[in-house]
Design a protein around this nucleic acid. Structure first.
Length: 446
RNA sequence: CGGGCUAUAGCGCAGUCUGGUAGCGCGUUCGACUGGGGGUCGAAAGGUCGUGAGUUCGAAUCUCGCUAGCCCGACCA
């Protein structure tokens, strides 16, 4: 993409309403624009990152054997009356009435709807196990939205629901989600820890939250410093291998890591040596639940088992806050000049800064670089504005592309361009061809 | 939902106390000089001062209502 043909409304000054880094930087980098409290338009750059996160989530869910579908944002109230949550949910649920005076709601989650879909189509244990998920906008009418997309009212969430015959099967689904989530966050360049969690208004008795350490996080967490050494890495997991998944679950949950909601001083003191105890703030970016027959019983989601008995299915629900992750990524990856995207989620792979727009040699070199990068399947952003070097560097630093190729008459006289890492600031001079190779190499691993 | 605050040009703000018909910086447009970290000079465009009523000869400014937004707390993916 050529910057002069893109839509990137960056701000030089900080908007007054933005208190935390991610909110401030998303506004300044032209990623989002507020439409109303806690409701945002996603401008092209933000939309690109959001779409990239969606893509990673889709890939990892399907790798785990989960099936995508798409349910509506607006739901009929009667489903929620059936589960008993229509009255239980409170004013956070946005209630709407249509022209026929029918009570509707903008879905804050989809347990009822998915259970309705399931029960109308599945009646035998032979069709289990089944895990369905979607990535869809949700609405929770927060009293006090804040921190940009980190705590909006409208938010994009991946929510998945497993249907199993037995608790053992459902716990295997639980482990599948735990492992697929670990993979998902690592691909995004984030280290997220599973922490034992309260089950909250959704209910149930088996739950972990995934938290990313960040000073602006809303949760206080207590953990063993050994947890920060955990890496999922490139392990190629067979998601049907129960023992292997259980092992990952055991490895990751053995180390003490809890939020303030479930923190237990006595257990903490007993299991974690004093010098390894850590307290920090963290952002919640996902949560998994096993809740058994909480919805399948009242909503009659029954299947016939091998003995010919009709039994309620065991369910769980599993969420990843996709739009919130954009904020979390920035909280975990920025400096005073702007965002620093991990390679796995960057909106463009590399920025090209032409330091003398209109100069024949510089223009030609940039055009060749741009074409060469595209030919290698890369997505470059070419800053072809008639701006001075400082302005181009500032813009590219702000929007956080992890790599920049700087092209100027001075280097071109020696046949070189400069490849600079946004994260370390280190640069290296090399031929344009070598720069293309290097960037291609970097992204081959992502 | 309790407490506090704000609303003036795309963004950040001054002007409000003491009423007299709106200003600064950034950004934008045009021209020139520039060209390796938001450059310089010159010209220009852009505002029903959130909204409704009231007071007044006259309201961004005073009074009352309404709306929207922000901060702290409680709540929350």
């Amino acid at each position: 993409m050529r910057l002069t043909r893109y839509f990137l409304p960056v701000l030089k000054e900080n908007p007054a309403e933005a208190q935390i880094a991610s909110h401030r930087l998303m506004l300044r980098a032209g990623m989002i624009r507020q439409a109303s409290a806690g409701i945002y338009s996603w401008l092209p750059l933000g939309f690109k990152v959001l779409s990239r996160l969606e893509q990673i989530v889709h890939e990892e869910q399907q790798r785990a054997g989960h099936i995508p579908l798409l349910m509506p944002t607006l739901q009929p109230a009667d489903l929620w009356q059936e589960s008993g949550r229509y009255n239980a949910y409170g004013p956070e649920m946005l209630r709407i009435r249509d022209r026929h005076e029918r009570d509707m709601l903008y879905g804050p989650t989809n347990e009822e709807m998915i259970t309705d879909i399931f029960r109308s189509a599945v009646s035998s244990y032979k069709e289990l196990p089944l895990t369905l998920y979607h990535i869809q906008w949700k609405f929770r009418d927060e009293v006090r939205p804040r921190f940009g997309v980190m705590r909006g009212r409208e938010f994009l969430m991946k929510d998945g629901y497993n249907f199993d015959l037995t608790m053992e099967d459902a716990l295997h689904a639980y482990n599948r989600h735990l492992v697929s989530y670990l993979r998902t966050y690592e691909r995004m360049g984030l280290q997220a820890f599973p922490m034992r969690a309260d089950t909250g208004p959704i209910g149930g008795d088996y739950s972990h939250e995934f938290l990313v350490l960040a000073p602006t996080g809303e949760s206080e967490v207590f953990y063993d410093s050994d947890a920060t050494g955990l890496r999922f890495g490139d392990r190629d997991i067979d998601f049907t291998d129960r023992a292997a998944l259980q092992q990952v679950y055991d490895d990751w949950t053995a180390i003490y890591a809890r939020t303030d909601e479930t923190h237990d001083e006595a257990v903490y003191a007993e299991r974690v040596p004093e010098e390894r105890r850590r307290t920090a703030r963290a952002i919640e970016v996902g949560q998994i639940f096993y809740f058994g027959t909480k919805y399948s019983e009242p909503m009659k989601a029954l299947v016939v088992n091998e003995q010919g008995e009709r039994v309620p299915v065991h369910m769980g629900s599993h969420g990843i806050g996709v739009s919130r992750l954009v904020g979390a990524l920035i909280e975990a990856n920025h400096d005073d000049r702007g965002i620093i995207w991990p390679e796995g989620v960057t909106p463009f792979h590399v920025g090209i800064a032409n330091l003398k727009q209109g100069d024949g040699a510089a223009d030609a070199a940039c055009d060749a670089l741009y074409a060469g990068l595209k030919a290698r399947g890369l997505d470059p952003l070419y800053d072809d504005r008639s701006e001075r070097a400082g302005a181009k560097f500032a813009t590219l630093d702000l929007i956080g592309l992890p790599w920049r190729i700087t092209v100027g008459p001075r280097g071109l006289a020696n046949g070189v361009v400069e490849l600079t890492s946004r994260r370390t600031g280190e640069s290296e001079e090399m031929s344009p061809e070598a720069a293309i190779d290097r960037v291609a190499q970097i992204y081959a691993k992502v």
